[in-house]
Amino acid sequence: MTANPRVERVDGAGQAPALVGESPVWRAGEQALYWVDIPARKIVRLRLDSAERSEWLLPEKVACIAFDRRGTVLAGCETGLFAVALAEVAASDAPGGEPLKATARKLAAPTFPFIDMRFNDGRCDRQGRFWSGTMVQDMAAANPAGALYRFDERGVLSGPVVDGLITQNGLAWSPDGATMYLSDSHPLRRQIWAFDYDVESGEPRNRRVFADLNDHAGRPDGAAVDADGCYWICANDAGLLLRFTPQGKLDRRIAVPATKPAMCAFGGRELDTLFVTSIRPATGASEHDGHLFAVRPGVVGLLEPEYAGDL
């Protein structure tokens, strides 16, 4: 069950740690990894071959991203979903070395039931619908006002599709798209659910517990699915990556140097590298917390689906 492949810190990602590194997305056509730093309001890109690092500043916190076929970013932010255009200039070329400003246009927004809410984890299903959930930013409040929403290829925001969430996380789909995964990473929940997913209508049904992390280590944060259909979850607060089989059995544990791994994504030329973003704790942070890591776990991943609509 325990595996120990080498986990390396990706120094090309930058020497300054992220506050909350999230939503890694591999772009095969660019051979580049994108991710976000939520409170810093940044989207970051690292080209693996050249180690060229670029970053863009958004007008508000950005928690999750996907891309359409033209390279426009679909971003889940504080006040809604945005189409974001990233200028093709390296951040090092910006005046004073500051991040470039991204052009953001609001696409849709739910009616938030409480103040101080935002989107959190999000990605596209296999058919190119974008899904993301909301949360109350004050996690100490343990407010179950969060919900999961669907943004389809027509640009229609639907939901809540799943409600009663405290800290929505863990979205992923099986290789055939017929199973949807969702987690709640709040310390009072620590649950991962599976749903039967109608690929034609985009409706999840038959919700059931897939894995209860109260029986394991850490809290279930961001996730990825490999080509074998196994579900990789970042065990936040435990410094671990956990892999569950499609039957919900834990079969792999990989330790990472950061205490709070946040989300993982497969990338690299052969999709055989698992990239892991992390969060830097407010107190007691180590030299590795908040950095990006890479590991070759011996399996390959799947290409991240693009949004099917026009942004």
Rank of each mutant, 00 (worst) to 15 (best):
D49V: 13
P175T: 01
A227R: 12
L188C: 11
R123M: 13
Y231H: 00
F244M: 10
V299H: 10
L182R: 06
A141S: 06
D125F: 13
I166L: 09
D198T: 06
L33H: 05
W131Y: 12
E52D: 15
L58I: 02
R253N: 02
V136M: 12
A16Q: 09
R105T: 12
P5C: 12
A211F: 02
C234Y: 02
F151K: 03
Y181T: 07
L242A: 13
E52S: 07
G248R: 05
T111S: 14
A40C: 10
C77I: 11
F82P: 01
V299Y: 08
Y181G: 03
L74H: 00
D226V: 01
P110V: 14
G155P: 04
L188K: 12
R208F: 09
T167I: 15
T245N: 01
D251E: 13
T72V: 10
I65G: 00
A223V: 04
Y181Q: 02
A28F: 09
T72E: 08
F130G: 05
W173M: 08
G218H: 11
E22L: 05
I233M: 04
R280V: 01
R269Y: 04
R296K: 15
S201M: 14
N4E: 09
V62N: 03
L241E: 01
G218R: 04
N120V: 07
L74W: 12
V44S: 05
D221E: 00
I233Y: 00
V84L: 08
P246Y: 13
D289R: 08
V73R: 09
R219Q: 06
Y34M: 05
S132N: 14
V89S: 08
L271C: 14
D163P: 11
E78V: 14
A94P: 02
L57P: 00
P17T: 04
E287M: 05
F114V: 10
K260H: 13
G76D: 13
D184K: 10
H288N: 11
V299C: 15
C234K: 01
W131S: 01
A255T: 14
A94N: 15
F151D: 02
G122V: 07
W56N: 07
A83C: 12
L240F: 00
